[in-house]
């Protein structure tokens, strides 16, 4: 079967093409799509190239949130937004290699919706919203509703991701990933943490330890209540070690991992509790240090 390559020059043309050919496979950085095509794992009837659409490579401040266009690469995200989106930038730095980060995009990570995608934990921890467009209109999909199954997402067949909306950090953020070496690894598990002092809430999410990336809701609620009730958001006193341990345990409890070639379920659960405790201590140290700086 012949495959056709569609190269819309504008966003409206892209949406029209997707409406006309809902089976068309979008391609941005191609770092997932081309692997599949090179290995004959996929033979779409239409490939829909989005790299001609200049506006997709822009990011901007959009009210309360940063709007990251679907064509923004990991490399530009790291260069431009690391101060405002530290968690997402940390995760981006662990993606592949320089060549992969020069092409790969957060939107592509969302399109693939792999449970191992590194952008997902920070996006979940920071309450991101996916801005999906179609010829029918615009839809804002809360990130918690975006992942619907293993490599499945909430996009309708005629929809494209235009941008991801992420609130800039209002407190410390951390990301940790376990892999078999330092560069070019798909995570065995990964964990993202965002503390939100302005609302007294906590975002905690993991990848590669359930069919979809997932928030550890009980762990988030426990830690937020603990920090609020003990007055620590204001006092910034050292964390109670028992609370740190409990937080780690609750994160691990939220996971439903499987055994596979990259690691066993037990190892993943254990690793998650360790990463959760560690990132919490790092984030809190950061939070305490910031106060010292502002008081001095």
């Amino acid at each position: 079967m012949a495959m056709e390559f569609l190269r819309p020059a504008t966003w409206d043309e892209a949406l029209a093409a997707k409406a006309e050919h809902p089976g068309a496979l979008p391609i941005s950085g191609g770092t997932d799509v081309m692997v599949e095509i090179n290995f004959d794992a996929t033979r779409p009837e239409y490939l829909l190239d989005l790299t001609r659409i200049e506006e997709l490579t822009d990011w901007s401040a959009d009210g309360e949130r940063l709007r990251i266009g679907a064509g923004v690469t990991y490399t530009s995200l790291i260069a431009d937004l690391a101060d405002r989106l530290p968690g997402l930038a940390m995760a981006s730095r662990t993606v592949g290699s320089p060549q992969i980060r020069n092409r790969g995009t957060v939107a592509g990570n969302l399109g693939s919706a792999s449970p191992a995608g590194d952008a997902h934990p920070p996006l979940l921890a920071d309450d991101a919203v996916v801005e999906a467009h179609s010829a029918r209109g615009v839809r804002h999909i809360p990130i918690t509703e975006f992942y619907t199954g293993v490599k499945r997402n909430a996009l309708e067949p005629d929809e494209l991701i235009a941008a991801v909306l992420v609130p800039p950090a209002d407190g410390p953020q951390q990301f940790a990933k376990i892999g078999t070496r330092n560069a070019m690894v798909i995570s065995v598990t990964a964990f993202g943490l965002a503390l939100h002092p302005s609302t007294g809430t906590v975002g905690a999410a993991f990848g590669s330890a359930a069919p979809t990336p997932r928030r550890a809701t009980k762990a988030e609620q426990f830690l937020a209540a603990e920090l609020t009730e003990s007055g620590r958001w204001d006092s910034r006193a050292e964390l109670d070690p028992a609370a740190v341990t409990r937080f780690g345990a609750l994160v691990a409890e939220a996971a439903t991992p499987i055994d596979d070639v990259r690691g066993t379920a037990d190892y993943r659960t254990h690793a998650l509790s360790v990463m959760a405790r560690r990132t919490l201590v790092w984030a809190w140290t950061d939070y305490r240090r910031k106060r010292v700086r502002t008081c001095a």
Partner: peptide, 27 residues
Amino acid sequence: CEQGECGSCTVYLDGTPVCACLVAAGQ
């Protein structure tokens, strides 16, 4: 490797180093 792992296909595309095996010719 044809899967972005080895870098032996690295070329500049509009001045940016990329894996040529992961760029569609049409792009």
